[in-house]
Design a protein around this nucleic acid. Structure first.
Lengths: 336, 336
DNA sequence: AATTTCAACTAGCGCGAGCTAGTTACGCTC
DNA sequence: GAGCGTAACTAGCTCGCGCTAGTTGAAATT
């Protein structure tokens, strides 16, 4: 337990010296190196001495010698998913920690001119939630990153964004809504994800025999989107699939100003189940993502890439749920 | 530009060999080692060859040789400040990058049982926004972290949380409000920060000759806080200093349900100027934090600790601003 | 001309851990 | 009691880089 408060750091050599054994022996014990037979007695002595001296392996030295940094870099898009994402990053962190890897998150912002973290950190794996654009992949490869998830050379299997929109559409459909709108966020950073979600929503609608949802031009938070919402209602749209809870809130606000009652005249479903959804008047129906599952899935993906463990299946490990609140109700046309 | 796509990595020795100079020379050029005189011609050749071969220094080796990891670990509390914080982390990241350091953020969650990142990462500095509790400091020290910010051995100078609440109180005071309430968040993770903000608000109120704001018992998002708000109004409170925009939104929602007009009968000021503030009906007056300034401040603190540069002054480098919107207006008592 | 100075380089150690290629010494067989 | 196998260990190289302690040769000084 004790550790020299201000002296040099304790190395494996210190343990060896203090015990009168060789450095190699210490290394074998501490790493449980396979193929090496160390007597239980020696093993115990080494471990005890390591603890006594407060030994901590020097990660830089380990990385240099072993050639692996034991770092996993999770590249986060700057989505405001925050709330659910945070939790599953935790899960993933822990799962990876148990395998001796450290998960570090990183959000490459457009504005920032600093070097991407994979260049400085030289992680063993770089993971992302969506496929990486080609220039980024090139940058990673040049920086010596050999494992990239999702694998740029394989057909995409990232379907994180499909389940939610489908649930949103199905929810509105069950309530009798037949003409839907899709409300996009104004934030340019979200374009990619919005595209994915809109495509999923459209697919789900068409699948149910509905016409494809009309798209509301990007919503600028705080801007005047009252007229467009009015136009939607005039066009017979009764249900709105919102990109996320914030967009849903914006639509509801606009509706309120335009004198459109929510949910009586217009139902709105959010996505991500953020705290906003609960705090709004009316409370927003939303899609909750199983963060724990996603976290484990992420970790499993990384470990797979590192150890060759079989790739886990996303559908099995995670799920999305629709939480019905007061912002959605039976379609007015059904009410007659 | 070219880099061997699958071979071994390019080392400084490769450059030296390819150029017929010594490894030391290459090192001196690449590090611009002070006290070494390398001819411009050689310097140029080395740099050109480094670029041509696609040389990237091996950070683990560098860390091992130099004894410094060149990592700065920013420990984030799990506040939902997100919005403003994210931006200034960016600023800090960049500022540190320019000094050759990499900023990594980390949120030690209560539930997570994985090792704290300073043990695995062995950063040169660990920074936090508030003072660290003693056990954490011990853990850092044991892990070999020598620089901790804020310095545990010095009197606290972390006043990140003072300016905002003061502005909130002053704003309400200027509008004629004389009896204020302070609305706290329900989230237990925020207790510490809420304490700090409430203390600052109280101090500001007393300083203006007001009585100390009454505290609203922790607000559970989505819970029924209508009665307490009603009680406040009955007690003559006309202005509410909310811990943050979310709490402000909750208060406004409760007021709406209780039939209390905002801002006519009750003014509410938020904090942090999150997107929520803009999206709410009415739009919430809030305190905006100069994130760029805070970011630079954080970076400056770290660089100070590393290089001995003079400690920057927080007041000078950053600022808070009150943004007045529709959730606050002149006190009803003044209107008579 | 002898000495000093200094720009411009180089040889090579050390950082701490991983790990290969040994070296003992002991037990067991024939 | 020689031969063999193997448990239990060790010497020492390696990883890539930082950097000290030189070496060299030419210009400047006395």
């Amino acid at each position: 337990m004790a550790s020299q408060s201000s002296g040099r750091r304790v190395t494996a050599a210190d343990i060896a010296r203090s015990l009168g054994v060789s450095r190699a022996t210490v290394g074998f014990v501490l790493n449980e190196t396979p193929g090496q037979t160390i007597s239980p007695a020696t093993t115990a002595r080494v471990l005890a001495e390591a603890r006594r001296l407060g030994y901590r392996p020097h990660i830089a030295a380990r990385a240099l010698a072993s050639g692996r940094s034991h770092l996993v870099l999770l590249v986060l898009p700057d989505w405001p998913i925050e709330h659910s994402l945070r939790e599953n990053i935790d899960e993933a962190t822990q799962a990876l920690d148990e395998h001796g890897y450290t998960l570090i998150t990183f959000t490459p912002h457009e504005g920032a001119r600093s070097r991407p973290l994979w260049e400085t950190l030289q992680p063993d794996v770089v993971m992302g939630l969506l496929r990486f654009p080609a220039p980024l992949i090139r940058s990673m490869r040049e920086a010596g990153v050999e494992r990239i998830i999702p694998d740029p050379d394989e057909a995409s299997n990232t379907r994180y964004s499909e389940g939610g929109p489908r649930l949103q559409v199905e929810h509105l459909h069950e309530l009798g809504h037949r003409r839907l709108g899709f409300a996009r966020p104004g934030d340019p950073r979200l374009v990619e994800l919005a595209d994915a979600r809109e495509a999923a929503a459209t697919a789900a609608a068409v699948n149910l025999g509905l016409e494809a949802p009309r798209t509301l031009e990007p919503v600028c938070v705080g801007s005047e989107l009252d007229p467009p919402v009015q136009a939607w209602v005039d066009a017979g749209i009764t249900g709105v699939v919102a990109f996320n809870d914030d967009v849903a809130a914006a639509i509801i606000g606009a509706a309120a100003r335009a004198g459109i009652a929510v949910p009586r005249s217009l139902s709105v479903v959010g996505h991500d189940d953020t705290p906003t959804a609960l705090m709004f008047e009316p409370r927003i129906s939303s899609v909750q993502i199983d963060s724990t599952g996603l976290g484990h899935y992420l970790a499993a993906l990384a470990i797979h890439a590192l150890d060759g463990t079989p790739t886990p299946d996303w559908e099995q490990t995670s799920a999305v749920t629709l939480i019905s609140r007061e912002s959605t109700s039976v379609s007015p046309s059904t009410q007659e």
